[in-house]
Simulated scan of single mutants.
Amino acid sequence: MSYEAFHDALRDSRFALNHGTGRMPAAGFGTLFRDLDLTTQAVGHALQAGFRHFDCAERYRNEDKVGVAIAEAIASGKVRREELFITTKLWNTNHRPERVAPAFEASCRRLQTDYIDCYLIHTPFAFEPGDNQDPRNAQGEVLYDAGVTLIETWRALERLVDEGRARSIGLSDITLPALQELVAEARIKPAVVQVESHPYLPEWELLEFCRAHGIILLAFAPLGHGMTPNVLEDAVLSGIAQRVQKTPAQVALAWSVQRGAAFLTTSTSVGHIRENFDISTLPVRAMVEIREEITTRVRFNSVVETGVPGFIARKP
Results as ranks from 00 to 15, higher is better:
M1K: 13
S2C: 14
Y3S: 14
F6T: 10
D8K: 13
T21I: 12
F33G: 01
D37K: 12
L38D: 11
L38V: 05
Q41R: 10
L47P: 00
R52P: 02
D55H: 08
R59A: 13
Y60H: 13
R61Y: 10
N62Q: 11
K65F: 07
I70K: 00
G77A: 13
V79H: 06
T88Q: 06
N92S: 06
T93V: 10
E98N: 12
F104Q: 07
F104T: 02
F104I: 04
A106H: 05
S107I: 02
R110N: 14
Q112W: 11
Q112E: 15
Y115K: 14
I116A: 09
C118E: 15
L120A: 04
I121W: 14
A138K: 09
Y144C: 04
E158F: 07
E158N: 08
L160D: 00
L160M: 12
L160N: 00
V161A: 11
G164H: 03
A166K: 00
L171G: 05
S172P: 10
I174H: 11
T175E: 15
L179W: 13
A186K: 10
P190M: 03
A191K: 08
E196R: 05
S197K: 06
S197I: 02
S197L: 06
S197Q: 10
H198A: 10
P199D: 12
Y200L: 00
L207T: 07
L207H: 09
E208A: 11
F209D: 02
L217A: 03
A219C: 09
A221E: 12
P222A: 02
M227L: 12
V231H: 00
E233W: 05
I240K: 00
V244C: 06
Q245S: 11
K246Y: 07
T247L: 12
A249Y: 04
A254M: 08
S256W: 03
G260V: 08
A262D: 06
H272F: 09
D278F: 09
D278P: 02
P283V: 04
R285I: 11
M287E: 03
V288S: 12
E292F: 07
R297D: 09
R297L: 13
G307P: 04
V308N: 10
G310D: 04
I312V: 06
A313K: 12
K315E: 12
